[in-house]
Design a protein around this nucleic acid. Structure first.
Lengths: 194, 194
DNA sequence: TGTACATCAGTGAACGCGCGTTCACTGATGTAC
DNA sequence: TGTACATCAGTGAACGCGCGTTCACTGATGTAC
């Protein structure tokens, strides 16, 4: 073999990482195969040595994006008590930084309206990601919380909805205010003393 | 003139109404000019007698869609006291019907993630729509509510976020449960006794 | 050690297709005389 | 009243472009002898 054993797998990972950013930045329909390949330092023709079609790339990109978020939040909340972890999560998620950085952010905040219109495999990947995010939040809520799972879903909906809405507000200061107020409200709802 | 004075304006309205549905159903990038014109009973060539380009159609479609929602909710809450109107609004918005019917629903629930990526005129039309929706909710909140406007924005974010999230859940019953639980929580937050 | 061959990730031209947009034309009806 | 002309909303062929996908080819390197 003229390349190392891991060479192809490394290339694939590079492509998936580029796709994970591009899909969040432009949506599944706004990204082109050629653009993602160029971002990974390759030409478009080689794409089909790694993926059967563009859909498959979008599926992998979504898994990568949800995985990145999960790992990042796991790192940031490592060793924290549940209530503290929840507060950390909210303080990282509902922020001007997240608003300004969809390509590195949560797919729910960045793609929620268009993903339900995608083909089945893409929708399934998205649903898996949403469920794992909701489950993570649910695990941080006190065990005796009534309707723990549905409260977690409700919190995800509010956080993602708030970030998405803040992107509709063109004024940065106004958006920042909205996000700050929402952070306070969400933490109150979760029973976290400010 | 071989057509009535109002003929052209009526045609334009037909096109805009078709576009308002199509844009919500498929997103601004998912709709084609030819498709909207066909929906209005015309061929694509005539489009440019009514609009300078596709962007302008999307702007009009958004205004129409927000207008439809506003009129519909005004009708349903006509004569109700503020608290009652708020409850009516939530009970119409956070529902399986809204989840199943994006083409006739709220643009915030259906387009929130992709509209911030559109060109300036489209974003501006969207922002105007969002602001008028938030203002309507704010007016229904008690006058002495702290941060009335930002609470209203927060409520819109949660309602739209919840409907968007429910569209990611493929199981109808599970989605309906999530929506019902969210309705309860939102009304509680707004201070409406159940 | 040196040479011929095999491998295969990646290249880039080419394809068919759908899209937004343009434009010469149509044809129903009103107006001028 | 009848006929020639003007109007203009709408038609449909054609355009250039970008996209997803295909495929014959390249060229660096490992293997066989």
């Amino acid at each position: 073999m003229r390349y190392s054993d891991t060479h192809k797998e490394e290339t694939r990972k590079k492509v998936v990482k580029a796709a994970a950013r591009a899909v969040r930045a432009k949506g599944p329909e706004g990204v082109s195969v050629a653009e993602v390949m160029a971002e990974a330092g390759l030409t478009h023709g080689g794409f089909y040595a790694h993926f059967p079609n563009k859909k498959a790339l979008v599926v992998s990109a979504l898994e990568e994006a949800f995985g990145q978020s999960a790992r990042r939040f796991a790192r940031m909340t490592d060793g924290q008590a549940p209530a503290e972890a929840l507060a950390t999560f909210v303080d990282l998620y509902v922020t001007p930084e997240h608003r300004a950085n969809p390509e590195g952010g949560c797919p729910v905040a960045g793609l929620s309206s268009e993903l339900p219109r995608q083909g089945l495999p893409v929708r399934e990947a998205y649903e898996r990601g949403v469920r794992s995010l909701v489950a993570r939040i649910a695990n941080w809520l006190p065990a005796d919380t009534a309707e723990r799972e549905s409260l977690a879903a409700s919190i995800v909906a509010e956080m993602a909805g708030t970030v998405a809405l803040s992107r509709a507000i063109s004024d940065d200061d106004e958006a920042a205010q909205l996000l700050a107020a929402a952070r306070g409200r969400i933490k109150t709802r979760m029973g976290i003393v400010q």
